[in-house]
């Protein structure tokens, strides 16, 4: 039974499988991207929706695409969290002492992240549909929206990788991830239209890629304009990868020295 080293791609899938199987024993993580977005959705629509948009139905229509984007940002924290757990526990060393492709552990994490992201998106859109959300665009609009969110998730997970490499322990990844993401996701047009905010804030909000991606998502689901916003989102994605991927790999090499 002589075994040849598996190809890097097979190893990536095996490691992605690992991250997903782990979820069974981590209800907290699963809750963070299953129950938390559901709670947000219900809370905002039924408690604040009437006051913000005049009716809960109108508010659901406005807010559902945005909350998908916001949730995507929080889910990426687990890429860095998982990576940091492996680094601090020595599991990463076990993988490095085996004939495993250098990039497979990271690629496995990011692949698993995309699966989790897809699950969260389906969950939120499904619940939205039950609550009365109706798409006004053809199916390709839905598919493009999901794809765009996943592409941005792929890019943004590199930020999470950097945090995961630098942080002392997994709790710090959590702490940093969530404290940084609350302002980034709330100072956006996810929950309320930018026109209702003071002028000085509008500039910040519109520059936030979370707003840009939310606008593109709304356009794609509701039949509004989306092309320009999708283009800006992709530019952000490329920019984030160009900065954070090399930075993360550099920090990782330093940490493993």
């Amino acid at each position: 039974m002589k075994s040849l080293p598996a190809s890097g791609l097979e190893q990536t899938f095996s490691l992605a499988w690992r991250s997903i199987v782990q979820l069974r024993r981590n209800p907290w993580e699963l809750g963070d991207y299953s129950f938390q977005p559901i709670l947000f959705l219900l809370l905002f629509v039924y408690v604040f929706g009437g006051a913000i948009a005049g009716s809960t139905d109108d508010y659901l229509t406005y807010m559902l695409p945005g909350i998908v984007v916001m949730n995507m940002m929080f889910v990426t924290v687990y890429v860095g969290h998982g990576l940091n757990t492996d680094l601090t526990s020595g599991y990463f060393d076990r993988l490095r002492a085996m004939p495993v492709a250098r990039w497979a552990p990271l690629a496995g994490r990011i692949t698993a992240d995309l699966v989790k992201q897809a699950w969260s998106i389906v969950l939120l859109l499904g619940l939205g549909w039950l609550m009365g959300f109706r798409m006004e665009a053809p199916v390709w609009g839905l598919l493009s929206m999901v794809l765009l969110v996943l592409v941005f998730a792929l890019a943004f997970s590199w930020v999470s990788v950097l945090v995961g490499v630098i942080a002392r322990d997994p709790e710090h990844v959590h702490l940093f991830g969530f404290t940084a993401l609350f302002p980034v996701t709330f100072v956006s047009n996810v929950f309320v239209p930018v026109e209702t905010m003071p002028g000085w804030l509008q500039g910040v909000v519109m520059a936030n890629p979370v707003s840009v991606l939310s606008d593109a998502s709304r356009g794609l689901l509701l039949g509004g304009p989306w092309l320009a916003q999708a283009g800006i989102t992709l530019a952000w994605a490329v920019g984030i990868i160009a900065v954070f991927a090399p930075l993360s790999l550099w920090a990782l090499r330093r940490r493993l020295k």
Partner: peptide, 26 residues
């Protein structure tokens, strides 16, 4: 290599841990 601190995955079963390593080794 068996490192100084047991580096197995706490969230997998014993079987899954070994299965994963076997798969990674091809």
């Amino acid at each position: 290599l068996t490192g100084q601190f047991a580096s197995v995955d706490n969230r997998l079963t014993g079987f899954e841990n070994l299965l994963l390593i076997g798969r990674l080794l091809g």
